[in-house]
């Protein structure tokens, strides 16, 4: 595109002039180039490598190109289906807990009329969101430690437990603990998104519901919930996407155990790729994980857009 077409400066003289002419003539390249390079380095190249590796047989010495080999193994490995099941339980549990508790906190905060107090509190609760996930995992592992954990100590002191319980040694309780740890770190995000949604509901809507004779519960059902729907979907999708691909919390809390009871897909990929060095297979499972996430997220986003369109008057 020539400078004249843009209504820009006339062609300049000297080195600076020539340089600025070149920039004007290649404005798209100049503006988009750096981000394209970054995108290539951090996304396109690794993603292509991942795809490429997933087509290699990496068992034994070296790599051999066998496109169907790893993908064929995925669906016949019984521990893969275990990981799928645990991932679904983990992500669903975390989704329900964090959005549910987030809603409760948001509703409470929305009653705080002083915006300074409300914002200060919303910022404070974000701290648990800011804690690195692996730290969260280690903290929860120690809290629920069978011999030294504070949870056992408290429960025994309160007379609820008679003796120490091995929380992380039992399949069911280990899953509950990792889900609790995961949602603990995601509740603030859900709360902040839902609070923003609550704040955007016009006061007039509550007044109108009151005039129409609605009780508090009916107002919640006919005004608050419908208006919050888009926020629910945003908070839910993002929470679910992260929980579905969760690695740091289950890995640092239980390492996937006991006996694979908390082995999510990401931990499963780590086991094959890093521990067993079968990175071809690990890549194939990764491709599967990314594909499922993308498909669900895309469908979800279209759904959200429709919802938002409906709500906008």
């Amino acid at each position: 595109m020539a400078a004249e077409e843009l209504g820009g400066a006339p062609h300049g003289e000297g080195v600076v002039g020539q340089l600025s002419d070149w920039v004007n003539d290649h404005i798209r390249t100049v503006l988009l180039g750096p981000s394209l390079v970054a995108l290539f380095v951090v996304f396109i190249y690794p993603a292509t490598m991942l795809l490429w590796l997933s087509l290699q047989n990496t068992r034994g010495i070296g790599e051999t190109f066998e496109p169907a080999y790893n993908y064929g193994r995925i669906f016949t490995d019984p521990t893969f289906w275990n990981a799928v099941e645990k991932t679904l339980i983990y992500s669903t549990g975390s989704l329900i807990l964090s959005v549910g508790a987030g809603l409760a906190i948001a509703l409470a905060l929305n009653k705080v009329l002083d915006s300074r107090v409300r914002n200060a509190y919303a910022t404070l609760i974000l701290i648990s969101w800011a804690v690195p996930l692996s730290i969260v995992g280690v903290t929860w592992r120690w809290m629920f430690n069978g011999q030294l954990g504070v949870v056992n100590k408290l429960l025994i002191d309160l007379g609820i437990l008679e003796s120490s319980y091995s929380w992380l040694g039992n399949s069911l309780s280990a899953m509950v603990v990792v889900i609790l740890a995961d949602s603990w770190s995601r509740i603030p995000f859900a709360a902040v998104v839902l609070l923003a949604g609550l704040q955007s509901i016009p006061q007039e809507m509550y007044d109108a519901a009151k005039m129409d004779g609605a009780t508090t519960l009916q107002t919640f059902r006919h005004v608050t919930l419908p208006y919050l729907r888009p926020s629910f979907f945003v908070a839910g999708l993002i929470t679910w996407m992260f929980a579905f691909r969760a690695f740091a919390i289950p890995f640092s809390t239980t390492g996937g155990g006991p006996g694979g009871a908390t082995e999510t897909l990401a931990v499963y990929i780590h086991r094959f790729g890093i521990q067993l060095l079968d990175y071809g297979f690990a890549s194939a499972v990764s491709v599967f994980l990314v594909a499922v996430t993308l498909i669900v997220a895309t469908g979800y986003v279209y759904f959200i857009l429709e919802q938002i369109e409906e709500i906008e008057v």
């Binding site: 007039e204 007044d207 109108a208 005039m211 004779g213 609605a214 006919h222 005004v223 709500i311």
Partner: peptide, 16 residues
């Protein structure tokens, strides 16, 4: 709701 009155609002306040 116990006053037998109805109100029309500036921004209509319809349930979207």
């Amino acid at each position: 709701r116990e006053r037998d009155i109805a109100m029309v609002f500036q921004n209509y306040a319809l349930y979207p």
